[in-house]
Amino acid sequence: MLTVDFDRLGIGPGTKVIDVGCGAGRHSFEAYRRGADIVAFDQNAGDLADVQTLFEAMAEVGEAPDYAKAETVRGDALDLPYGDGAFDVVIASEILEHIPRDGQAINELARVLKPGGVLAVTVPRWLPERICWALSDEYHANEGGHIRIYRADELRDKITARGVRHIRTEHAHALHAPYWWLKCAVGVTAEKNPLVSAYHRLLVWDMMSAPPLTRVTERLLDPLIGKSVALYFAKPVVRLGGN
């Protein structure tokens, strides 16, 4: 399940991509499939071991082009171990809401993006997230949990202040918002609740089958209750000597 729209990133053979806070690797795998040189970056060693295993499996079965490169790197998003302008594309999906010093993380995302490159940032959307917080403290008040709720325009301005240009805002995963509201209402860990289980089966079926009815329904609902907001930015190219 991708939150970032890869058709907006211009990823192709040899594109240098870093997926900061890659988690289970969903965006890293898609970049690899498209032929990128991808760095899956995270602080969780267990997640990175699983991502590396799947990178190797993808290479073995030919799910990624032979020329594509994939590696996992453990580190801190507040201090990325790369030079300025090292990457054509920078992805940071659903991580900033976890980071106390989000401004420093944003500085790093913008710093390692090369001029002319694209930055994609996604976070939980304000309204669906407010409902979750109102229904359940357990949803967010835990170690490593969500520590803030962003308004899209405030986050956009915070990122553009780092010298990148906002190019688009989209919303995603409308069908997932009611699922999380339901979980928050009955208990976030109540996976065996009949309503939660039934809705989860629906979401899995939708992801595996992508039936036209649910795909159209979600596209119509995304602007209203999309669970995530995705913001896209471009780093200006500095032209010297009037050229």
Rank of each mutant, 00 (worst) to 15 (best):
E56H: 14
Y82T: 03
R26S: 11
Y67D: 13
Y199P: 04
R219N: 14
V20S: 02
G163Y: 08
P223W: 08
G117E: 00
V89L: 04
Y150S: 03
H176K: 09
P13A: 09
R151C: 03
V188A: 09
I131C: 06
L221C: 05
A120S: 10
D137G: 08
M208R: 15
D47C: 12
S197W: 13
D88C: 06
D88F: 04
R162T: 15
T15H: 03
H146Y: 05
I106A: 04
M58P: 07
I99F: 03
L78N: 08
L203M: 13
A120E: 06
I159H: 04
K16V: 06
F6M: 04
P13V: 06
L155M: 05
L221D: 03
N243R: 15
E60T: 14
D88V: 03
Y179R: 02
A64C: 12
L9S: 00
A45E: 10
R26V: 11
R156H: 05
G145F: 11
V204Q: 15
V51Y: 07
D19R: 00
L109A: 04
P100N: 06
L9R: 00
N107P: 07
Y139G: 01
V216A: 15
Q43W: 15
G14Y: 08
L9V: 00
M1G: 13
L202S: 11
D50K: 15
H166E: 10
L203T: 09
V188T: 14
A77T: 09
W126R: 11
F233P: 06
V17S: 00
W180V: 02
H176M: 12
V20D: 01
F6D: 00
Q43E: 15
R156F: 01
D19S: 05
K192F: 12
V90W: 01
R148K: 10
D157G: 02
L80P: 00
L195H: 13
A198D: 13
R26L: 12
R151T: 07
E71I: 05
L182S: 08
A105Q: 01
E94H: 02
I167P: 10
G10M: 04
E71C: 06
V118I: 15
H166T: 06
S197V: 10
S136Y: 02
E97Y: 05
I91T: 05
P128G: 06
L135E: 01
H98F: 05
Y232C: 09
E191S: 11
R125W: 07
G35R: 15
L9I: 01
G62K: 12
E60A: 15
A59C: 10
D137C: 03
N107A: 10
E191G: 10
K16C: 03
K158S: 12
E63Y: 10
G226L: 07
V118P: 01
T214S: 13
E218D: 04
S228H: 11
D102R: 04
F29T: 02
S28I: 01
L9G: 01
P223L: 05
I147N: 06
G46D: 15
A86C: 07
E63R: 12
A59I: 09
P128L: 07
G23P: 02
C22H: 00
V204N: 13
H171N: 14
E56P: 05
H166R: 09
A141C: 09
I106P: 00
L2R: 07
V237H: 13
K69M: 11
Y32H: 09
R219W: 15
A185S: 09
P115L: 01
G117Y: 07
V188L: 12
R111S: 02
L2G: 02
